[in-house]
Measured scan of single mutants.
Amino acid sequence: SLEEAIRRAEEALRKGQTFEYAGIRVTTQEALEKFRKWAEKQK
């Protein structure tokens, strides 16, 4: 689910890792916010 993907992205960010979902790379807090906004639109 998208909620699960967001949780995994947050977890990866805390560990300093890269999270990738549907071709979207989350490597920074800013990218995480963009990913969250994108995920909201997918619902």
Rank of each mutant, 00 (worst) to 15 (best):
F35E: 00
S1D: 14
Q29W: 15
I6M: 08
E10T: 10
E40P: 01
R7L: 12
S1F: 14
A5E: 06
V26P: 00
V26A: 02
G16T: 02
F35V: 02
K43D: 09
Q17W: 10
F35A: 01
A12Q: 06
F19G: 01
W38K: 01
K34W: 15
F35M: 04
A12K: 04
K34M: 14
T27M: 09
E11V: 07
T27K: 07
R7D: 06
Q29F: 14
T28L: 05
E30M: 08
K34R: 14
G23S: 05
F19Q: 00
I24Q: 08
E4V: 09
R36M: 11
Q42W: 09
A31I: 06
F35H: 00
F19V: 02
Y21K: 01
A12P: 00
L13Y: 05
E10L: 06
R25V: 15
A22Y: 08
F35T: 00
T18W: 13
E4T: 09
E20T: 09
R14P: 01
E33G: 05
E3H: 09
E4S: 10
E11R: 06
R25L: 15
A39D: 01
Y21G: 02
F19S: 01
E33W: 05
E20P: 00
S1G: 13
A12D: 03
E30S: 10
G16Q: 05
G16H: 05
K43S: 13
R14Y: 08
A12S: 08
K41T: 14
A39W: 08
K34S: 11
G23W: 05
F35L: 09
W38A: 02
L32G: 00
A5K: 05
E10K: 05
A9M: 07
R8W: 09
R14T: 09
I6H: 01
I6S: 02
S1W: 15
R25Y: 12
K15R: 13
A9I: 05
R36I: 15
L32S: 00
F35P: 00
E20D: 06
A31W: 06
K41L: 14
A39Y: 07
T28K: 02
A9H: 01
R7N: 08
E10S: 06
E33N: 09
K43V: 14
R25H: 12
Q17I: 12
L2R: 03
T27C: 10
Q42E: 08
E40D: 10
F19M: 02
T18P: 14
V26D: 00
R7Q: 12
R14F: 08
L32D: 00
E40A: 09
R8C: 13
T28I: 03
R25P: 06
Q29G: 06
A9F: 05
E3Q: 11
F35R: 00
K43M: 15
T27D: 15
I6L: 12
Q42L: 12
A9K: 00
K43I: 15
R14W: 07
K43R: 09
T28C: 06
A12N: 04
G16N: 07
E3D: 15
G16W: 03
K34L: 14
G23V: 01
A22S: 08
A9Q: 01
I6E: 02
K34I: 13
R25A: 10
A22E: 11
K37V: 12
E3Y: 09
K41V: 11
L2V: 07
Y21W: 13
Q29M: 14
R36S: 03
R7S: 11
E30V: 08
K34N: 12
T27H: 10
Y21E: 03
K37Q: 14
A9L: 04
A22T: 03
Y21M: 05
E10I: 09
L2T: 04
R25W: 12
F19W: 05
E30Y: 07
G16S: 04
W38M: 03
R25S: 12
E20R: 04
I24K: 04
R7W: 10
Q42C: 14
E10G: 05
T27R: 07
V26N: 01
W38C: 06
T18G: 09
L2C: 08
L2F: 10
R7A: 12
A12V: 04
E20F: 08
K37M: 13
T28D: 14
L32W: 04
E33K: 07
Y21D: 02
Q17R: 08
Q42P: 04
E33H: 06
Y21F: 11
S1L: 12
W38S: 01
K37Y: 11
E11D: 11
F19R: 00
E11Y: 03
A12E: 04
R36D: 00
E20H: 06
A9S: 03
R8T: 07
Y21T: 02
L13M: 06
I24Y: 11
K43L: 15
R8S: 11
G23K: 03
R14A: 15
E4C: 15
G16Y: 03
K34D: 11
Q17D: 11
L2Q: 02
R8D: 11
E11M: 07
A9V: 03
A12I: 04
E30I: 07
K15G: 08
K34T: 10
E40M: 09
L13K: 00
A22Q: 13
I6G: 02
L32A: 01
K34Q: 14
G16P: 00
K41R: 13
E40W: 08
F19P: 01
A39G: 04
R25T: 13
T18N: 10
E40H: 07
A5G: 03
K15M: 14
K34Y: 15
A22N: 14
W38Y: 04
A39I: 13
T18C: 14
L13T: 03
E40V: 06
I24T: 04
Q42D: 05
W38E: 02
Q42F: 11
K15Y: 09
E10N: 05
A31N: 09
W38N: 01
A39P: 00
G16R: 03
L2E: 02
F19T: 01
A5Q: 10
S1K: 12
A22F: 10
R14M: 12
E40S: 08
S1R: 14
A22R: 10
R7V: 09
R36Y: 06
F19I: 02
T28R: 02
